[in-house]
């Protein structure tokens, strides 16, 4: 493949509310394998940010280590990015979010980066409700080290080398719900109709938003016997579609009464959830966990917005941290001065 990305763009590319074209949200050309599910996620992020008219430079993208964590290079070239160490992006994101609450944070991780080496930090990130969107590109295997099973590989899934996985896979979406995440979604990299609005909704949510994206590894985990191949995922997908209408847009689409359910986010945006074949209540954590469990037992992959609490309090709110970003505070706000220090000295005599 070519590593040179053409600079030419159609002169009449549509612009969003800020006057940006989709090209303003793109990154460098991907060096992932051709057909990698992760590239579809990158593309969904680009479209989501374009459609939501986010200022590219007000977004910060962070990642850990692995194929997934290379992704931030391939989208949002005008945003700062931070490729941290393996499994420890959550802590970097936490510090970044405390230092500047004025940016929108996207964390990109993988199943190895989150469910194994980064499990501790992931759980504590949820617990603290750091205001960010956290996407796991979940392919059930370690790509960069050539296809070992990851901790999300399903029980019984067959590796490229023929070994049957003897362990139960960790379901990150259920874990996130159990640990109190305010926004939990699951999607499939091949379902951009669902993934894009899900990412837009996640970025509008004022708190920790988790999306587990099944993203097949074309090189090491796309064969017969793998439960995370394109074919197997498509076959078992149980998708709950949704639309996202940002705060400043009018709701123009008409839905038949009784077929959709609207949820308003803190910033005024509305998520329209289309009912799937069964009743589903997005605001009921226990019911959501139950539904995911039932689907798994039936060999189905339930995708969509699994749980949402639009009113959860994020870390900066919980700690009662100043509205002005901490990184903008200067000497006057931070340094108590010599008079105060002299009185402290006095107390130490």
């Amino acid at each position: 493949m070519s590593y040179l990305k053409p600079k030419f763009r159609h002169p009449n590319l549509p612009t969003n509310a800020l006057g940006y074209t989709v090209a303003d949200y793109e990154g460098s050309i991907s060096t992932l394998c051709a057909g990698c599910g992760h590239d579809s996620i990158s593309s969904a992020i680009i479209n989501a940010c374009f459609q939501s008219s986010l200022e590219p430079h007000k977004i910060a993208k962070l990642s850990g280590i692995g194929c997934s964590s290379k992704m931030p290079t391939y989208f949002l070239g005008k945003s700062h990015g931070f490729n941290s160490v393996h499994g420890r992006m959550p802590s970097v994101a936490t510090g970044a979010s405390l230092a500047n609450r004025g940016l929108t944070y996207i964390g990109i991780s993988g199943d190895g980066d989150t469910a194994s080496i980064g499990m501790g930090q992931f759980v504590h990130l949820i617990r603290r409700n750091v205001n960010m969107t956290y996407i796991v590109a979940n392919n059930g295997c370690y790509g960069l080290t050539k296809g070992q099973d990851s901790a999300t590989a399903d029980l019984g899934s067959v590796s490229k080398y023929g070994a049957v996985n003897p362990f139960d896979g960790i379901d990150l979406a259920s874990l996130a719900m159990l640990q109190g995440a305010g926004f939990v979604g699951r999607s499939f990299s091949g379902d951009k109709e669902q993934l894009e609005p899900l990412i837009r909704a996640a970025m509008s949510h004022q708190g920790f938003a988790f999306i587990d994206v099944v993203s097949p590894c074309v090189t090491f985990n796309n064969h017969q016997g793998s439960t995370k191949s394109y074919a197997e995922t498509r076959e078992n997908l149980d998708a709950m579609p949704l639309d996202f209408v940002p705060m400043r847009e009018e709701i123009t689409t008409q839905y038949d009464p009784g077929t959709t359910q609207g949820v308003t986010l803190h910033d005024g945006s509305v998520i329209h959830l289309h009912k799937a074949s069964h009743e589903y209540r997005t605001n009921d954590r226990t019911a959501a966990l139950n539904a995911v469990q039932m689907a798994t037992q039936e060999g189905r992959i339930l995708t969509g917005l699994l749980f949402l609490d639009p009113n959860s309090q994020n870390l900066n709110q919980n700690l009662n941290i100043a509205s002005k970003p901490l990184n903008e505070l200067g000497k006057n706000e931070l340094c108590p001065g010599s008079r105060v220090l002299n009185s402290i000295n006095e107390g130490l005599r």
């Binding site: 970097v92 994101a93 510090g95 504590h124 941290i321 990184n327």
Partner: peptide, 22 residues
């Protein structure tokens, strides 16, 4: 902001994230 981290790995990660952000 003061955060009691889950371990020292996270503590220094937070410091570095905040420093990156100025």
């Amino acid at each position: 902001a003061i955060v009691q981290a889950e371990d020292e790995l996270a503590a220094i990660g937070m410091v570095i994230g905040a420093g990156w952000n100025g």
